[in-house]
């Protein structure tokens, strides 16, 4: 290996340790096993797609990684060392940033206030340095969404796309190493969706590892290096993008079986 292979061509032979490894993660609500012994890993500069039907456990799994929910058992290993993530602060300390499906914005606060929420810039005597925060926000927004102008209004009066860019800006501003994107394009129009796709490619080229969760199978297929399919709390299989077709993925999502195990009859029934 004289040159480092691009992860998309052969992730299995990348010599480095994974950025994150989640091993045998289990979460149950009452008697329901929302996540049932799931293991996934993510390398630097790699995009892992997480797909599955409603209630497959994707969101719960990534909530464990982002510190929003504690796992009942299992291990999270970051850079080869076991990590303890008990709350969102811990996750951020490891460089894990999350764009939640709900966006998780405080509706009554402006863009800068949301972007720096929990990590406010402060001036002498510990006062909030709102100007510095607004300036930084203008900088990030200038790159992400140049049309964004409403820096002084509460995010509740912004459009869906603008709100989404605030959530994305927050995740990318703090030098994330690991980015979790839960349905990042759900609220967006076609032009904005294209922008997010470009952004994902750019972040990937900067060496950031990305977990991408999406209902849009084509989004996931186009952007991911590997795809993990979840079904009823378990990983059905993790496949290289280059090894499968979108139909194979669809089959895995719906039937909960790896492509080889599904019978021709079952596959045919999908197209009926």
């Amino acid at each position: 290996m004289t040159t480092i292979a691009s992860p998309s061509s052969s992730p299995a032979t990348v010599p480095q340790v994974p950025l994150v490894e989640m091993r045998d993660i289990r979460v149950s609500f009452g008697g329901v096993h929302a996540v049932d012994g799931v293991s996934v890993d993510l390398h630097a500069g790699e995009v892992i797609g997480l797909v599955g039907g409603n209630g497959a456990g994707k969101s719960t799994l990534i909530r464990v990684l982002s510190g929003a929910h504690r796992a009942d058992s299992g291990q999270i290993i970051i850079d080869g060392t076991p990590a303890q993530i008990d709350n969102p602060r811990d996750a951020k300390a490891y460089g894990i940033e999350t764009i939640y499906q709900t966006l998780a914005l405080a509706e009554n606060i402006d863009a800068a206030g949301n972007m720096f929420l929990g990590r406010e810039l402060r001036s002498r005597f510990g006062s909030l340095d709102d100007s510095a925060m607004e300036s930084a926000t203008r900088g990030v927004m200038g790159r992400l969404n140049p049309n964004f102008k409403n820096f002084k209004t509460a995010v509740m009066s912004l459009s869906g796309g603008q709100r989404q860019s605030v959530a994305i800006a927050r995740a990318v501003h703090f030098n994330a190493r690991i980015l979790i994107m839960d349905e990042p394009t759900a609220a967006l129009g076609p032009a904005e969706t294209a922008q997010v796709r470009d952004l994902i490619r750019q972040l990937k080229s900067e060496g950031i590892g990305i977990f991408l969760i999406s209902h849009d199978i084509h989004d996931v297929y186009d952007l991911s290096d590997r795809i993990s399919v979840m079904y009823h709390g378990k990983v059905v299989g993790t496949v290289k993008r280059t090894d499968v077709t979108t139909d194979d993925l669809l089959a895995m999502i719906i039937m909960g079986k790896p492509p080889g195990e599904a019978t021709q009859k079952e596959l045919a029934s999908l197209h009926a």
Partner: peptide, 10 residues
């Protein structure tokens, strides 16, 4: 404004 968002923001 949003208790969950505040919690998730740390």
């Amino acid at each position: 404004g949003n208790p969950d968002a505040a919690e998730l923001a740390g």
